[in-house]
């Protein structure tokens, strides 16, 4: 193995996410029950009922695809849904005097507050005036409306799920205890 060029190009989260989604649909991998449903629907009308998910490329690729897609879908960068929105944001960012890496970080994390933007851009207060900062934040809000309310709801659901699991576990333990008790009485 020889590494010819360590850093040929930078990729944004959006591009990597799209690439992994391509892999996922190519190999028909499913990571959640919803994926499974979608896949069934996809193959409902086709003659080939066989899924192509068994491939030669090894388990590791599937593992990392699962982990990365899960991570990306929880990140704010998953709000970029189309190439057009992505392009428009880049064109807008190009009007400012920003480093390539800073633009990349802005696209990756889509800052929604001034504090977040100040962290991403070095010496933000000297290089950009307040209007420019607000312009960027506004543009992001315009192109990718935040779904904070929905997120909160999702969190609530997750907690409920945890509770249910705990209850199930407790019940399981009780069941075992009862079995033990039965066993002792029989003796």
């Amino acid at each position: 193995m020889k590494i010819l060029n360590e850093r040929d190009q930078f990729l944004s989260n959006y591009e990597v996410f799209e690439h992994l989604k391509g892999l996922k649909s190519k190999y028909d991998w499913t990571f959640t029950p919803e994926d499974e449903e979608a896949l069934k629907k996809k193959y409902e009308n086709s003659k080939h009922k066989r899924y192509k998910r068994f491939t030669n490329c090894g388990l590791d690729l599937e593992v990392i695809t699962r982990d990365m897609t899960e991570y990306f879908s929880r990140l704010s960068s998953s709000m970029i849904t189309s190439k057009e929105g992505f392009k428009e944001l880049m064109i807008y960012l190009n009007t400012f005097d920003l480093m390539k890496i800073e633009k990349l970080q802005i696209v990756n994390s889509l800052p929604r507050s001034m504090a977040h933007l100040y962290v991403l851009v070095e010496e933000c207060d000297q290089r950009l005036d307040e209007e420019a900062c607000e312009g960027i934040l506004q543009k992001i809000g315009e192109l990718f409306p935040s779904e904070e309310e929905e997120e909160e709801e999702e969190e609530g659901e997750e907690q409920q799920g945890d509770d249910e699991q705990e209850i199930a576990e407790e019940q399981g333990e009780e069941g075992q205890l009862e079995e033990q008790a039965d066993a002792t009485t029989e003796q």
């Binding site: 193995m1 590494i3 010819l4 040929d8 190009q9 490329c57 970080q105």
Partner: peptide, 29 residues
């Protein structure tokens, strides 16, 4: 952050994949 790295490597293509297109077999390996 993600980068693209250029790598050169010698890949072993096992005989049972000779019937598939070469770039598929290489990608899998």
């Amino acid at each position: 952050m993600f980068v693209l790295s250029e790598i050169q490597d010698l890949v072993r293509i096992p005989p049972h994949t000779f019937n598939t297109p070469i770039h598929h077999a290489i990608n899998d390996e």
